[in-house]
C-alpha cells in the first residue's frame, strides 16, 4: 500500500464528469477490477482518481460482496452452539448484508457531516463511493479468516485487526480525497461519528438497565417445595 506523505498536498476537488479513474478501455468490469486492485495496492493515487468520478455502483457491489463473504465466513468459521439449516443461514446472510449497507450509508452520512463541520468540502455521494470501495481489503482478509478458523490456528483476531486497520486507513484517505482535509481532520471525521454512536448506544443501554432493574427486583426467588 502506498500513500503520499501524511501531511502532503491534498488532491484538488474533483470536477464533475472528470476522466475515468484508471486504465483504458476494457469496459466497466475491467475498470472496476483495476479500481479494486488500485485501492488494495496503490490506494493514494487510486482514491484521488476515483474521487474525480465516484464509482457508486462499484462501491455498492464491493460492500455487498464483501458483506456476503463476511457473513458466510462467520457461519463457516465459528463452532455454532446449535445447528443451522439453509433457511436460518440465508436469513443471517441477508441480515448481515442489510446491516452492511445501512452502516455504509450511515457512516458516509455521519462522516460527511463531521467532515463539513471540520471545514471540508465535498459531496456525500462521492464520499460514500470512496468509503464503499475502501471495503475491498475484505476480498483478501476474509479468506484468510476462513482458513485460520478452519485450521483452528486461533489467530483470527489478528486478521480481524488487520482488516479493520486496513479499512480504516483507506477510510481516512478517502475522506482526505473527497473533502480535501488534513490527515488529522480526516481521522476525526472517520472516528467521531462512531464514537458518537457508541456514546448514544451506551446511554440507551444504561437507560434500559435502569428501567429494567426495578422490574427484576420484583421477581420472586424460586422456592423449593
Amino acid at each position: 500500500m502506498t500513500e503520499e506523505g501524511s501531511v502532503g498536498p491534498v488532491a484538488p476537488l474533483p470536477a464533475e464528469g472528470g476522466p475515468p479513474p484508471a486504465g483504458k478501455g476494457g469496459g466497466a468490469v475491467g475498470r472496476g477490477l483495476e479500481a479494486i486492485f488500485g485501492v488494495l495496492f496503490s490506494p493514494g493515487a487510486t482514491l484521488t482518481a476515483l474521487a474525480a468520478r465516484p464509482p457508486l455502483g462499484l462501491a455498492a457491489l464491493v460492500v455487498g460482496v464483501t458483506s456476503v463473504l463476511g457473513a458466510m465466513v462467520s457461519v463457516l468459521g465459528v463452532d455454532l452452539p446449535v445447528p443451522l439449516g439453509p433457511g436460518p443461514i440465508a436469513v443471517w446472510v441477508l441480515a448481515v448484508v442489510a446491516a452492511a449497507y445501512f452502516s455504509w450509508l450511515a457512516a458516509a452520512a455521519g462522516t460527511h457531516l463531521v467532515a463539513e463541520l471540520l471545514g471540508g468540502r465535498g459531496r456525500a455521494t462521492g464520499l460514500a463511493a470512496l468509503l464503499g470501495v475502501a471495503q475491498s481489503p475484505g476480498f483478501i482478509l476474509q479468506p484468510v479468516l476462513l482458513v485460520l478458523a478452519l485450521a483452528r490456528v486461533g489467530w483470527q483476531w489478528a486478521a480481524l485487526l488487520a482488516l479493520a486497520g486496513w479499512v480504516l486507513a483507506l477510510d481516512v484517505m478517502a475522506v482526505r480525497r473527497s473533502h480535501q482535509l488534513s490527515v488529522g481532520r480526516a481521522v476525526g471525521a472517520v472516528f467521531l461519528p462512531g464514537c458518537a454512536a457508541a456514546v448514544v448506544l451506551f446511554l440507551l443501554l444504561a437507560a434500559m438497565i435502569a428501567l429494567a432493574f426495578p422490574l427484576v427486583q420484583t421477581i420472586p426467588w424460586p422456592e423449593p417445595w
Partner: peptide
C-alpha cells in the same frame, strides 16, 4: 492487463 487479472484472481 496484469492488474485486472490479479484483482480478478483475488475476488
Amino acid at each position: 492487463n496484469w492488474k485486472r487479472a490479479l484483482a480478478l484472481a483475488i475476488v
